[in-house]
Amino acid sequence: MLAAGLLLAAFLLFLVMRLRGQGDGEQVRVTVDGKTYGTYSLFEERKLCIRQESGTNVIRISGGTVWVEEADCPDGYCVRQGKIHRKNGTIVCLPHKLVIEVTGGGDGGQELQPDAVVH
């Protein structure tokens, strides 16, 4: 029962995420330690070398996909997560506090931003 319920919950969550992330993304946002490092077009060939005290990640944007080509983090998960291109697709390198996200870009990305924030 519990197994079925949890699996169902996981599947529904997955489905919701998939639907939200339908279609290919347009931009790549790279975040380091919670701060935006840069936003790049998914359709421009690019090689990013992000050097930090904790180590280096080499990110490659090519052919409408983005992936981590090389990294010296201890677990190597960021490289193994492979290529992403779907909207909301994410690659994480936990040891280097690096997050790569594919966003809708253009209008889609702007819509998510609030017009104003009142404190």
């Binding site: 996981a10 969550l13 994480v92 506090k97 997050v99």
Partner: peptide, 18 residues
């Protein structure tokens, strides 16, 4: 990582936990 984008892995991790 100060980023909730990590939660992207929640469904996969829940299923793996099961």
């Amino acid at each position: 990582v100060k980023n909730t984008a990590v939660l992207y892995y929640l469904p996969a991790l829940t299923a793996a936990g099961v």
